[in-house]
């Protein structure tokens, strides 16, 4: 008799636990559906609801992780990092910890706080727990460098994973395509407009050269004709101005060209690259 009553009670308790788990699971699925539909604000609300009612903390890590991902989807990286850090604290097992930690790094990459991302990657590399994840660490290090426009270091990081890694090849190609800002400036000191021509701005370079030639002629002509004041005025206000302008332009054009080259690769990464992205 006692055994039977005990059985009934146990069954009821079991049934209630199952029931609780069912509606938590339904809630988790509901929040996930909102997340998949990119309704991140609402998804966060529902994950938070789940966090409150999940008294057994069954979904705690997953909900916090998903809140972090939702904030990331809304480009709210500070909040995303906060929730990934919460998830890291509530993680069970090294895989969950590693996933949360890398999400913090990925958010830092997107936020362009590269120094912080690299610092966290260094810490992760030193941690013996994650020795098996070294390729992933180098992968994100490569991304951090690419976002910081340091393609040479990015290529080195990807080469550590695999010398023919597709991103290593892309980073190398981008680095090689870039022009030298210093060279552009130096040749403009020697021949005004040359730096602009070197960066592909031929018309601008030729016009700069023409202005310098004309202003130089006027200045020298004024001095040779004993019009010293005119010589100083034209030299200072015209020649020197355009000479300095040609050097400034050479630098600016070189920087802009390098940004264009980097952006072409970054556009590829964002729109066409099939691998995992920050």
């Amino acid at each position: 008799m006692k055994a039977r009553a005990l059985f009934i009670l146990s069954f009821m308790l079991f049934a209630f636990v199952i029931q609780a788990q069912d509606y938590l699971k339904l809630q988790f699925n509901y929040a996930n559906d909102l997340f998949k539909a990119e309704q991140y604000y609402d998804a966060i609300t529902e994950y938070k609801r789940l966090l409150l009612f999940d008294s057994t903390n069954t979904y705690r890590y997953q909900a916090e992780y998903k809140i972090g991902e939702s904030y990331k989807g809304g480009a709210k990286y500070d909040d995303a990092i906060k929730y990934f850090s919460h998830a890291e604290k509530d993680a069970q097992g090294k895989d969950e910890i590693f996933a949360a930690k890398t999400q913090v790094i990925r958010s830092n990459i997107l936020r362009r706080t590269t120094d912080r991302a690299l610092q966290l990657l260094d810490e992760l590399e030193k941690d013996s727990t994650f020795r098996g994840e070294i390729d992933t660490i180098y992968y994100w290090r490569g991304w951090a460098y690419m976002f910081a426009d340091n393609w040479k270091s990015a290529a080195r990081a990807f080469a550590t994973i695999n010398p023919s890694h597709p991103l290593k090849l892309l980073a190398d190609q981008t680095d090689r395509a870039k022009v030298s800002v210093t060279f552009a400036k130096v040749i403009s000191y020697i021949l005004p407009g040359a730096g602009s021509i070197y960066t592909g701005k031929i018309l601008s370079g030729l016009m700069s050269l023409a202005w310098n030639a004309a202003a130089g002629y006027w200045t020298i002509n004024a001095f040779t004709s004993n019009r010293i004041f005119d010589g100083f005025v034209v030299g200072e206000l015209v020649w020197f101005r355009f000479y300095r302008g040609s050097i400034q332009n050479a630098e600016e054009f070189a920087v802009q060209k390098n940004i264009d080259i980097a952006n072409k690769s970054l556009r590829y990464l964002q729109n066409e690259y099939k691998g995992i992205k920050p």
Partner: peptide, 22 residues
């Protein structure tokens, strides 16, 4: 507890990877 920053409802946002040009 920490304060939240959601003062208005917001939407998903795609952030460009590209570098800013002057």
């Amino acid at each position: 507890l920490h304060a939240q920053t959601d003062w208005v409802k917001w939407d998903a946002q795609t952030v460009s990877y590209e570098l800013r040009k002057t």
